[in-house]
Amino acid sequence: MARFNILELDRRFIFLMIFLSVLTPLFLPAPKTVKVSPEVKKVYDRIEALPAGCIVMLACEYDPSMSAEMSPVNMVVLRQCFRKNLRVLTTCLMSNGVSLVESEINLVAAEYDKKNGVDYVYLGYKPYPAAIILAMGEDFRLAFPSDFYNTRLDDIPMMKGVKNYQDVSLVLAITSTSGIDYWITYGQGRYRFPLAAAASAVMAPNYYNYLDSGQLFGLIGGLRGAAEYEQLAKKPAAATKGMLVQSVSHLLIVGLIVLGNVSFFVARRRRRGQE
């Protein structure tokens, strides 16, 4: 009888196991607590400390392919801002995400009965992020003469007296790409406004050094960061539920890595023994 060799396992079994490890925890209760990291807490605390009426700028740069990871951050931050009666100014410097971001803002704004142009403004998309970020530092009207709905900024009540980054309390770049580099280099580097980032987990490790240098005052990394934020906001949602999925699937992946390595070394030892 042929001996089963883990190294010859069809990769489709691994895909199936990963799928089941993601599917099964969905039917289990979400974790009650998620340990909050200081870099996430700093973002939450800073927004929480702002008095009503202040403007928070959210630079949402993600498209539907990254929505599972980035939308929970955007939603929970928007809910915090609207709960505190802060005004929100949003851009989307990624063309494929324009409608997605718009629908999320409108959804959360409707929950809190907030009005477009009064409580929030959605500027939408313009190409060439570096040029747009620099132009907004001089005047939002240079980069965006009108908002997403083609209303001139001068005709929008919320934008009265709001000229550039000096008139916003902080900028949070919610970005699934290296777009944060633009905000750090051309935005914070040139105009020195308080900047925080919410990065996809792939990108997050690249930005921890900017925390130490003070160029970022906070960092929300991937779905885990979103879950921590939901914990702080006491509004557990999709990200918190996703933590159990992460734990189970990570355990499986670690187990498979260990099993694959052990099998590899055992097979090599056997091969050498036969030689």
Partner: peptide, 27 residues
């Protein structure tokens, strides 16, 4: 060590995306 941390985060990111799709399919 840096690459290892990045790889770990990448796995987390990809699982998050799969979670998003499976969540959509189921719920």
């Amino acid at each position: 060590i840096g690459f290892g941390a990045s790889f770990g985060y990448t796995v987390m990111s990809r699982i998050s995306l799969l979670y998003g799709r499976v969540n959509y399919l189921v719920f």
